[in-house]
Design a protein around this nucleic acid. Structure first.
Length: 740
DNA sequence: CGCTTCAAAGCC
DNA sequence: GCTTTGAAGCGT
């Protein structure tokens, strides 16, 4: 048996928008294997890349690899995942690799932390601030080494005082070793108490997590059934077999509350991975995950690309959440990609939700996924009592939106020292402003949608394209002063109504456009959980996987919003959202109730919510999907055209639609249900335009009965259709479906 | 004829 | 994605 000759040529995938791996010559004395991080020349610059393939032949006229980075290599399952994901989303492999290597790029730059310790006699000139610093240092342990910032904080002085002491020679700086990693989560840290239904599901999941085999399970449990505690037992099982776990959460659900719950069960918090984590901590986490020392990561969708050494379990919490869809750059659905990552890693995947998506339900029903159910609430707690308020009969006074029955319910709740949640999926004060004198409607100059009154900010904002202007005091059309009227409610207006009705109640408005970003939002959510608010008025983000133990009333201000917006998922989304919101009530000791204000109490979505006949709702929706050939039975993809110029985006989208119809032999710009034999294209007329991060997006939906048809078709129109120019970009977003 | 601007074409 | 390149636009 002869030893394998060392590779002389390597194909290196580079994290830029290129699909092919480039070949480089390996310099003598450098041993390279697939997965190794390398620095290679690219054009005039040098860049980081990953060895994708290694060969031992030819390559004389190639450029040479510059060096090898001493980082843990990208393991084969992750490399295959990158390849697969790129093929599935029709994006360049380099762009997918980019998502996996963004963190280690910072790793090399991790700054050394500076600590301080006593080094000499007290300063000649002692001041109160200096004395405080000395006291802090003396009271600390023998090796009193802290960071400068921490020391300054402890001594209640500025960092300048400490610098002064260093100059005097009283203190000296030392390079701190990196903080030792916290101990691994302990599967036996606490005695676990589960009710029989939970215990049964937990045992099944734990068994799968111990199997070292790819499986997918749907954990479907009503709100408050203790899904989290149940899947924690799968985590414990993975820990016992020494394998790692990834818990995927929608970004917003990654709160202190979740981490604390984890810590209660396992003794320590899991490693965190989301946009709010600092570069240094991310670099630390990255290497800990790659080395296998970090056992459990709780992360947002970007954590799908982490370099796990031995991933045994992936939990996707709130699997139905639309937030799992990544829509810029590479478009992917994190839940589905989690399933595929699990497949490549031979890991168990658990999808958890109270209101699973239709495609996951179907996958469970057909036996492709395992199906575990928790039908009732944990610890004998009951589901909230549900009631509809028929707005045709119990109408609120003119210009008000809180009906008398709802107002009474809020009054009872607050009087009882409990919390009430008013849900309305509409940001701002009022969705429409018009002039009482001439009837002029304020519309967006850029995209003709209604301008939404944001009274807190004193502005009119277009929710479609983001255009914003100061709110004028006179009508721009007829010049009349003080004639502008706000029509309809937004959360701000509901909050105003609450203030009028209950002046003494502590109120909080939560909506995604709130200043302060996700960090502030997390704090507010934690604040509500601590009972610092009486009445919360919020948009959909209050629906998301948060536990408010003191909340006993959940009310839907207008349940009909979103039912008639043309989205093929409108009914499913509305049902999921409202079910999640009503499920917020009564999670603690006290029983909860939910009120649904609607003008259509007989609508199937309301019926399902009110009667709790979820099965019938799913049945109806799944049948409708099957008839329409939509996912999970047919395939749907979006061609997303985006540009900084609206006209360019629209024109290009139309041209692409034309190319698509031509390719199907169909009739351009008509809904091609009958014209196209196998591919159906919904043209731009059906596609909403939106502005995200300064770019107009136009979406062209393409429908096909089979995945292969769709992939080939998209490839063809992308190759043969009009080429995007300038700032125009085209991305492909494949809707979730069964792909296993 | 030079200088700026902007989109297109490679990158091994 | 980034860098180079080359053609078009504009002014002297």
């Amino acid at each position: 048996m002869t030893a394998e000759p060392p590779p002389t040529v390597v194909d290196v995938l580079i994290p830029v928008a290129v699909d092919t791996a480039y070949s480089y010559r390996v310099p003598k004395g450098l041993a390279l294997a697939p997965g190794d991080f390398v620095v290679v020349p690219l054009g005039t610059r040098q860049t980081l890349g990953v060895v994708w393939e290694a060969r031992s032949a030819g390559g004389d006229n190639l450029k040479q690899v510059v060096s090898r980075e001493d980082w843990p290599p990208v393991r084969e399952p992750l490399r295959r995942f990158v390849d697969w994901l790129a093929a599935w989303t029709l994006s360049p492999r380099g762009m997918v690799l980019r998502m996996a290597v963004r963190a280690p790029e910072f790793a090399g730059a991790e700054p050394v932390r500076i600590g301080l310790r006593r080094a000499g006699p007290p300063p000649t000139r002692m001041t109160p601030a200096r004395l405080r610093v000395m006291t802090v240092l003396d009271s600390a342990e023998a090796e009193a080494v802290t960071s400068k910032k921490a020391l300054a904080e402890a001594a209640n002085c500025s960092a300048g005082v400490i610098d002064g002491l260093v100059d005097e020679g009283t203190l000296e700086t030392v390079a701190l070793p990196p903080d030792p990693l916290p101990p691994p989560p302990d599967p036996d840290a606490t005695a676990v108490v589960l009710d029989p239904a939970q215990a049964e599901a937990a045992a099944a999941l734990a068994a799968r997590a111990a199997e070292r085999r790819f499986t997918v399970s749907l954990l479907e449990g009503v709100t408050g059934s203790g899904k989290t505690e149940t899947y924690f037992e799968a985590v414990a099982s993975a820990l016992r077999s020494g394998r790692q776990t990834l818990i995927l959460l929608p970004e917003i659900a990654l709160t202190a509350q979740f981490l604390d719950r984890f810590a209660e069960r396992f003794g320590v918090r899991p490693a965190e991975w989301h946009s709010g984590v600092s570069v240094r901590r991310r670099a630390r986490a990255w290497s800990g995950i790659a080395s296998g020392e970090i056992k459990v990561v709780a992360g947002a969708r970007s954590s799908l690309f982490l370099p796990f050494a031995d991933l045994g379990l992936i939990v996707v919490d709130e699997e139905h959440e639309a937030a799992y869809k990544q829509d810029d750059g590479v478009s992917y659905h994190a839940r589905d990609m989690a399933v595929m990552r699990g497949r490549f890693e031979e890991a168990a995947v658990v999808l958890a939700s109270a209101t699973p998506s239709l495609e996951t339900r179907v996958n469970a029903e057909t036996g492709r996924y395992g199906h575990l159910r928790l039908a009732s609430r944990y610890a004998g707690r009951s589901m909230p009592a549900l009631a509809a308020v028929d707005m045709r009969r119990d109408a609120p006074p003119r210009g008000r939106w809180i009906s008398p029955p709802l107002a009474a319910a809020i009054a009872d709740t607050v009087a009882d020292g409990k919390q009430a949640l008013l849900f309305l999926n509409r940001r701002g004060y009022a969705p429409l402003t018009l002039c009482r004198s001439c009837g002029h409607r304020f519309t967006c100059g850029q995209c003709s949608a209604w301008m939404v009154d944001h009274r807190f900010r004193g502005a009119l904002v277009c929710h479609l394209c983001g255009y914003m202007e100061r709110k004028p005091d006179h009508c721009p059309h007829c010049g009349e002063v003080d004639a502008l009227v706000a029509c309809g409610p937004g959360v701000e207006r509901i909050a105003e109504e609450v203030a009028t009705l209950f002046p003494d109640a502590r109120r909080l408005v939560l909506s995604s456009d709130m200043p302060g970003g996700t960090e502030r939002l997390r704090q507010e959510l934690d604040g509500i959980a601590r009972g610092e608010v009486d009445v919360v008025v919020g948009t959909q983000l209050v629906a998301k996987g948060h536990n408010f133990p003191n909340l006993t009333l959940a009310a839907i201000v207008d349940a009909d919003v979103g039912l008639a917006n043309g989205d093929p998922r409108a009914a499913e989304r509305t049902f999921q959202l409202l079910q999640q919101v009503t499920g917020r009530a009564g999670r603690g000791e006290a029983p909860g109730r939910a009120l649904i204000q609607t003008y259509q109490p007989d609508h199937p979505v309301m019926r399902a919510l009110l009667t709790g006949d979820v099965e019938r709702f799913y049945r109806t929706e799944i049948d409708a999907r099957q008839r329409a050939g939509l996912p999970p039975f047919g395939r749907l993809a979006g061609l997303i055209v985006s540009a900084t110029d609206r006209h360019a985006a629209e024109t290009h989208a139309r041209a692409l639609a034309r190319a698509a119809y031509a390719a199907t032999g169909g009739d351009p710009l008509a809904r091609a249900a009958d014209a196209a034999p196998s591919i159906e294209v919904f043209g731009p007329a059906e596609a909403p335009i939106a502005m995200i991060r300064g770019r107009y997006r136009f979406r062209l939906l393409v429908k096909a009965p089979r995945s292969a048809d769709l992939q080939g078709f998209l490839r063809r129109i992308l190759a043969e259709g009009p080429k995007p120019t300038g700032s125009l970009r085209v991305a492909v977003d494949v809707e979730p479906q069964s792909f296993l």
